[in-house]
Write a protein that binds this DNA or RNA. Structure first.
Length: 593
RNA sequence: CGGGGCGUGGCUCAGCUUGGUAGAGCGCUCGGUUCGGGACCGAGAGGUCGGAGGUUCGAAUCCUCUCGCCCCGACCA
C-alpha cells in the first residue's frame, strides 16, 4: 500500500479533546476521529487493527465449537418487556419508536434476541450445548462517555451466549470460555489478569473479568503475591483482622469526647482526650454512613453502615448485602437533619428505622468510639452487638493493598489498575425462564436452558493494547494487531535508483506475506517521515535512501528496541523474517496469566 | 443529573476586558532551493467567529436564550 494514497492525516499537536494517551495517539496517528460524544469514525488504520483482533477472537472461539451469527442492532421493545428489562434498564438503553409508534431500542447487549432465536430453533437436549456469538456494534447511551474509545457510547463487541442442559454443563462451558479468553489475550501479547468480579444486578453465581493492566485503567485490582487469588477490588474479600483488645467492656459513655470544630477521622481521634486517653488509636474509632437503598419493587429503606475508623467502605458490598437495585449516600443535608448532628459527629446509636450492617472486623469489638448524633461529641464504649439491636455483621469494607490474603493466608495483596476488556458470566436461567427458552430432556421433561454470556470489547481491547505499548514518540504496536507490520520508508523519492529499490522491496515483502505500508510521499524530509513512522508505530521500519545506497545498504529498524540492522537490499526479506520471529518470541514470553 | 471549562480556516490557538473591514503557527496547493530525526524562500486556496434573537451607525467582542463538546463527581455492562 502506498502511503501517498492512504486516507490519513497525522497531527503534530494533540487534539484538545483527547485526554488519555491512547486517544491522543490514535487521533494524532489519524486512526480515529470523533463524530459526536462517544462516537468515532474508525479510519483505515484503526479498522485494520480492529479486523485483525476480531480474526484472533474468531479463530479461538471457533476452535471451541462456537458458531458465529449476526443479530440486528435494532431490537423490538417487546422482547425487552418479556425479559423484564424494558423497565429496569436505565437511560443507557436508547429507545425510540418507528413510524407506526412501536417501541424499539438500540442493542446494548443481546440476551433477549439470542434467547428468542434459540427458543424458536432448539427443542432437544440432543442439540445442546450450543454456543453462539457475534461481533457487532453496540450502543449504550452512557451518562458520561470518556477517554475516546475506552468508554464510548458506540463500540464493537464480541458477545457469546451459551445454552446448556444443566448447571454442571454450564459450569464446564464457562471454563471453556475462560480458557479461550486466556488464549485470545495471550496471543495479543498484552499483560492481563483474569479477576474474580462482582456479578452486579444481573445476578449470577460467578463471573470473571479480563483486565489489561494499565495505569490509566478505570478498575482497581488486588492480587495475592503468593496464590492465584486476583479480584476486582469491588469484590475482594477483606481479610479478618485479629480482634483488637481494647480492655474489658464497659458501658456506653454518652457524649464522652468533645472535639469542637475538628473535622476528619484522624484529627478527631487525636483530639479524643480524657483522664486515661491522650487521643484514641484510629482503629478504636468507628465511622458511619447512611445509605438510601432502592429495591426492584420500588420500595426504599435506610441502611446504616458501621466500619472501623481506618477502613474504607465498599459500596458494592453494601449494595449486595442489602439486595438493593440502587444505593446512594444520603445527601448530607438530609443526613444531618435525620441524625441531628453535623457531618463528622453522626453515629448509629439511637437511630430509628435504620437497618444496621457492621463490618465483620468489628464482630467482637468493644469500647469503640462513635459519633454521638450531637455536633462536637462522640460516644465512647460502643459495642455494636450490644448497642445496635438487630444489627448484622458482614464484609462491607474495601480490601486494601498490603492486606493479608484470606485465601491462602500467606501472601499479601498487591494493587493494579486495569482496563476491563472481557467478561465471562454464568447467567443461569434468568432469561430462559422469563422468555420460555426450554428443551426436552431424555426423560421428556421440559426444562429451562442454563445460560452463560461472554463479552469482549473489541475496540476497547485495541485501545488497551496501545495504553500498554507506547513511548514518547508514539504507538508501539503488538505484532498481531499492528495495522501494517512493515513501514517501508523511501527517504529520497526524487532519486530514481532509490525508487527502483523501494518499489522492489515493497513487492518482495508483500510476496513474502508481510503487510507493508510504503511511505512514497514526495517533498518530505527524512526527519518528517521518521517522526510519522514512530507515531504510527508499526513493529518494523524498513528504510531506503540515497545515502545508504551509496554504500550498497538498506536498513531495518525495530520500533520497540530501536535496533538498526544494515544489509544489502537482496537480504531484506530474510532479515525481516528474522526480525519478525524475534518479535513474536518476545511476545510469547510477555503474555499475561 | 450536580460542579467547572471550552466553542474563531483541516489541527493547535491569539483576538473579546476597552465594539470599528478576521489573525498566527502547523497542514494543504503551485514554483524554486533543500534532503538521514518534523528544512527554507516566494506565491496561493481555505473561516455564515457553534446557532438564534437583542443592543448599536457598526458585534468574534456587549446582553438574553439555545445547541454542542471536554473535565471532576454521581451512575453503570
Amino acid at each position: 500500500m502506498k502511503q501517498s494514497k492512504l486516507l490519513i492525516q497525522t497531527l503534530r499537536e494533540v487534539p484538545r479533546d483527547a485526554e488519555v494517551v491512547s486517544q491522543q495517539l490514535m487521533m494524532r496517528a489519524g486512526m480515529i476521529q470523533k463524530l459526536a460524544a462517544g462516537i468515532y469514525d474508525y479510519l483505515p488504520l484503526a479498522f485494520r487493527s480492529i479486523r485483525k483482533f476480531e480474526e484472533i477472537v474468531r479463530e479461538e472461539l471457533n476452535k471451541d465449537g462456537c458458531q458465529e451469527l449476526l443479530m440486528p442492532m435494532v431490537q423490538p421493545g417487546e422482547l425487552w418487556q418479556e425479559s423484564g428489562r424494558w423497565q429496569f434498564y436505565g437511560k443507557e438503553l436508547l429507545r425510540f419508536q418507528d413510524r407506526k409508534g412501536a417501541d424499539f431500542c438500540l442493542g446494548p447487549t443481546h440476551e433477549e434476541v439470542i434467547t428468542d432465536i434459540v427458543r424458536r430453533n432448539v427443542r432437544s437436549y440432543k442439540q445442546l450445548p450450543m454456543n453462539l456469538y457475534q461481533i457487532q456494534t453496540k450502543f449504550r447511551d452512557e451518562l458520561r462517555p470518556r477517554f475516546g474509545l475506552m468508554r464510548g457510547r458506540e463500540f464493537i463487541m464480541k458477545d457469546a451466549y451459551s445454552f446448556c442442559v444443566d448447571d454442571a454443563d454450564a459450569d464446564r462451558e464457562y471454563w471453556v470460555m475462560f480458557n479461550a479468553y486466556k488464549r485470545i489475550f495471550s496471543r495479543l501479547g498484552v499483560k492481563f489478569r483474569s479477576v474474580e468480579a462482582d456479578s452486579g444486578a444481573i445476578g449470577g453465581s460467578f463471573t470473571h473479568e479480563f483486565q489489561v493492566l494499565a495505569g490509566s485503567g478505570e478498575d482497581a485490582i488486588l492480587s495475592c503475591n503468593n496464590c492465584e487469588y486476583t479480584s476486582n477490588i469491588d469484590k475482594t474479600e477483606a481479610p479478618l483482622v485479629p480482634g483488637q483488645d481494647h480492655g474489658p467492656a464497659f458501658e456506653l459513655k454518652k457524649d464522652h469526647f468533645c472535639t469542637p470544630g475538628v473535622v476528619g477521622q484522624v484529627e478527631q481521634a487525636a483530639g479524643m482526650q480524657d483522664a486515661d486517653h491522650d487521643g484514641m488509636p484510629i482503629s478504636q474509632t468507628s465511622k458511619f454512613f447512611l445509605y438510601l437503598c432502592t429495591f426492584f419493587d420500588g420500595s426504599t429503606k435506610l441502611v446504616g453502615a458501621v466500619l472501623r475508623g481506618d477502613h474504607e467502605v465498599n459500596l458494592v458490598k453494601v449494595k449486595n448485602y442489602a439486595g438493593a437495585m440502587a444505593l446512594e449516600l444520603m445527601p448530607i443535608e438530609e443526613a444531618e437533619a435525620f441524625t441531628g448532628a453535623k457531618s463528622g459527629f453522626m453515629g448509629p446509636v439511637g437511630l430509628k428505622n435504620v437497618q444496621f450492617v457492621v463490618d465483620r472486623s468489628l464482630q467482637s469489638a468493644v469500647n469503640l468510639t462513635c459519633g454521638a448524633n450531637r455536633t462536637d461529641y462522640h460516644h465512647f464504649g460502643l459495642d455494636p452487638a450490644r448497642d445496635l439491636p438487630g444489627c448484622t455483621f458482614a464484609d462491607i469494607r474495601m480490601a486494601a493493598e498490603g492486606d493479608p490474603c484470606p485465601r491462602c493466608g500467606k501472601g499479601t495483596f498487591e494493587a493494579f489498575r486495569g482496563i476491563e476488556v472481557g467478561q465471562v458470566f454464568k447467567l443461569g436461567t434468568k432469561y430462559s425462564k422469563s422468555m420460555g427458552c426450554t428443551f426436552l430432556d431424555e426423560n421428556q421433561l421440559e426444562k429451562p436452558m442454563v445460560m452463560g454470556c461472554y463479552g469482549i470489547g473489541i475496540t476497547r481491547t485495541v485501545v488497551a493494547a496501545i495504553e500498554q505499548n507506547y513511548d514518547a514518540d508514539g504507538i508501539i504496536w503488538p505484532w498481531p494487531i499492528a495495522p501494517y507490520q512493515i513501514h517501508l520508508l523511501n527517504l529520497d523519492p526524487s532519486n530514481a535508483d532509490v525508487n527502483v529499490i523501494a518499489n522492489r522491496l515493497e513487492k518482495e515483502l508483500e510476496a513474502a506475506g508481510f503487510e507493508v505500508l510504503h511511505d512514497d510521499r514526495e517533498g518530505m524530509s527524512p526527519g518528517a517521515k521518521f517522526k510519522d513512522a514512530d507515531l504510527l508505530g508499526f513493529p518494523l521500519r524498513a528504510m531506503v535512501g540515497s545515502r545508504g545506497l551509496k554504500e550498497g545498504v538498506v536498513e531495518l529498524r525495530d520500533r520497540r528496541t530501536k535496533d538498526v540492522r544494515k544489509f544489502k537490499p537482496e537480504h531484506m526479506v530474510a532479515e525481516t523474517k528474522m526480525a519478525r520471529d524475534r518479535i513474536l518470541l518476545e511476545l510469547e514470553e510477555a503474555g499475561g496469566r
